[in-house]
Every structure is written in C-alpha cells, then in structure tokens.
Design a protein around this nucleic acid. Structure first.
Lengths: 206, 206
DNA sequence: GCCGGCTTGTGCAAATTTGCACAAGGAGAC
DNA sequence: GTCTCCTTGTGCAAATTTGCACAAGCCGGC
C-alpha cells in the first residue's frame, strides 16, 4: 500500500477539510452535494475538488453530485479515521487542560488516553477526566498501550526532549503546540500549531 | 505598496518560521547563520531559504551567512511585526481562557486587548488580565480601538456570525479556532487552527 | 598582496500544482 | 423513448514552486 507516491500530500492535506464540510452538509440534511456547491462553501475551485476526489475512486454521480454519506464514509476510510485513535498528551498547563477537556476530539475520532507532565505539583491532579501522570512513566505506558499519536503542549524549551521521548515510545505522529521546530526521524510526522505563525502570516498583508 | 503580486504567498508563509528560528539562534548567541545551517534546523533546503530571503533584499554576506540581528530586524519589518498588534478575542471557554493567559503572544508582537462572550454568566468575569465584555458591545469597542485582528474561540455554530460581526467592526485578519470554514470578504484574511485537521492529515500515513 | 575555503544570489530546468474545457453519462419531464 | 439539464472525470495547457549548479564575492591566514 504505497500511498505517498500515488497521492500527493497537497491532496491529502485537503481531505480533512472536505470531510469536515461534508459532515456539516449532512447535518443540514443534504444527501447529495455537487463539487461546485462544496467548492463555494470552502472557497476552492470545483475542478480542484473533483480532481482530488477522483484520485480515490469515482464516488460522484453525473447530473447529481456526490452522495454525502458514501463520500464521508470513503474519506474516513482513506484518512484512517474510520476508527478511534488514542492520543497521548504531554504538558498540562493552561493549554493542556483546554485540550484535555475539548469535546471536538472525541466527536471526530480521537481520544486523549493519557496525560503526562514533569511538574510534581501537577502529577496526580486531574485534567478533563484524566489523571496527570509522571512523564518518567511515559515511555512504558505509551509503548504498552501502543499509542501512535502524541500532542505536545509544553514550553518550547522542553518540546524537543519530549518529542524524542515520544518517538522512543513508538509514537509516529506528533501535533506540536510549542513554538519550535522539531527534529524527528523520517518516518515520524509532525504538524505545527503555534498560533503566532498564522498571525504573522496575516500581518504581512495588513 | 502592491505586495501580493511581488511576493508569492508560499514565501510569505515561510517567513514567520524563519523569524522564529532566527530568534532561537540569537538566544543561543549566534550572530551569523548560513542558509545551510538554518535549513538543517528547519528541514528546508538551503536554496529555498536563499531564494526566499533574496526576494526582500541582499541581507547575506558571502562566506559568512546572514547576520542574525539584522535579518530578524528586516523580517520583522517585512512581516509588520516591528510593532505590537492589538487583538480581540471572542469566546471565553476553556480555549479562550488558555489563549488569554498565553504569554507567547506578548513576547512576539501581539496583545489581546479585549475579550468578548455572549454568555451572561461569563460577562464581567476575568480571563487572564482582561474583563470579559458583552459581545453586543464588540462592534463599537473594536471600531473605536481600531483593532484589525480577531481570534475566534467559540463553538462552530457561532463562528460565522462572529466573523461577520468582526468584519463589520473593521477586523481584517481572523484566526479561527472553530472547526468550520468561514466565508468573508476578499480583503479579509482567515487562518485556521482546528486541531483535528492536522491530526487527520497525519492518520492518513499511519 | 594573494590564496583557499565558504556562502550568497540567481539563471535555468525540473517537478508539482492548478485550472480550463469538454466528452460522457445519469435523471427527470413529457 | 427522447430531449434537456446538470455534473462528473480527465486530457491538456498554464502557472507556480522547487532545486541544481555555478559565477561572484568576502574572509582569514600567511
């Protein structure tokens, strides 16, 4: 299943956006949606959407558009979110707490299964419905649970070290809230969510 | 000052990343850094970095690299973060609180100047060092203060309405944490920070 | 002053990504 | 059944983005 060569990453990166929009459309009661309608909702050209979706199969019906339910199902399969992924959270400050309590993860296929911190004052306290554990236990706990996804919500100074630990524990995908670039092995993916970066991208145009 | 035609957005979008890395380098005491060194730190090719930077002027010195201080200064100017931007926060739930208390904004040129919510139970309470105000006062307050940047941390259902309100109040750049695409006029920029999107981008490869 | 070692800035080519435009095909009206 | 309307999937061309490779240039050592 060599996927990278087949599907360019730009396309993959748009799929979750399509999925989210389709789920909104379904909630509105739509059963079928055209690439044009979807494109207008997302400010993406309809040709782009058709070409992207055609890489995974012919889900559309000429004259009607795409059946919403079937397409949601197909996208979930391709994105591997037709299951629930356990996630490990590291760093339980303000942001970590907000993440632990955020309902949006569970609704869309992710479950924060464990939370770690290195501050003794935090260990043993609760975050959402989790008990914060000692980061020294992370490797074993994550390994045993087979968790593949980590979220880093620590200060920048600790982030690289935490990343190393996560990789060591078997994590293959990291969502990094800390404002720093992480260096990881090639087979580990990182996505960044430093809020200042998008702000600075916008001020360029102001 | 027609900037869009001159500098492609892909380039602009990398500048804040460079800036952040340069600030880290400076903290380490580096006064000069080569495109290769910077590229290795960011997993970006050195040619890419040289080409990006060359669009703004010739800051580099052959044989040595780029002077860190001068380049930071120049990037800040081009990104318009050589000043402090006031930001208005809408939605003071868990996430909104975390944002209001986050120190990283102030350190890098942004100040959350006001916070609004529509829940009467929250209005008047504090978030960080702000007092939460009634969203019905938003338009006037934001307009008077001349605030151009907004952050939306409300549930998805309210986000579009809030965006409309912000635009009406004169906001020209929106950072949207709600998991929904926003439709705004062409001269308004939006950046998205729904954490589930990057997670789903990564599970494709797991 | 001259030489060797690095690094920049950039012309050019390759690769990737987007968008146009249309043949093919399904659905409903009558 | 036939006709009309609408939308998909895609070949091809255009536009954008990346990367190579090298001349030009600065620095420190001798």
């Amino acid at each position: 299943m060599a996927k990278k060569p087949e599907i360019p990453h730009v396309v993959v990166s748009r799929l979750p956006i399509y999925l989210r929009a389709l789920e909104h459309a379904r909630q509105e009661g739509l059963t079928c949606i055209s690439s044009q309608e979807l494109g207008e909702r997302l400010s993406i050209s309809s040709a782009q959407i058709r070409k992207d979706l055609s890489m995974f199969g012919e889900y559309g019906k000429q004259g009607r558009g795409y059946p919403v339910d079937a397409l949601i199902h197909a996208l979930r399969q391709h994105l591997h979110v037709d299951r629930v992924w356990d996630v490990v959270l590291v760093g339980v400050g303000d942001l970590g707490h907000a993440l632990a309590r955020y309902k949006g993860f569970a609704e869309r296929g992710f479950r924060i299964a464990m939370a770690f911190d290195k501050d003794p004052a935090k260990i043993g306290t609760t975050a959402g419905d989790l008990t914060v554990e000692d980061i020294r236990l992370l490797a074993r706990r994550v390994q045993e649970a087979g968790i593949k996804i980590g979220m880093i919500a620590t200060p920048a100074a600790a982030a690289q070290e935490v990343a190393n630990l996560l990789v060591f524990a078997g994590v293959r995908a990291i969502l990094n809230y800390a404002p720093i670039h992480l260096t990881v092995p090639n087979d580990v993916r990182v996505e960044y969510l430093d809020p200042v970066i998008p702000l600075q991208r916008m001020t360029y145009y102001l």
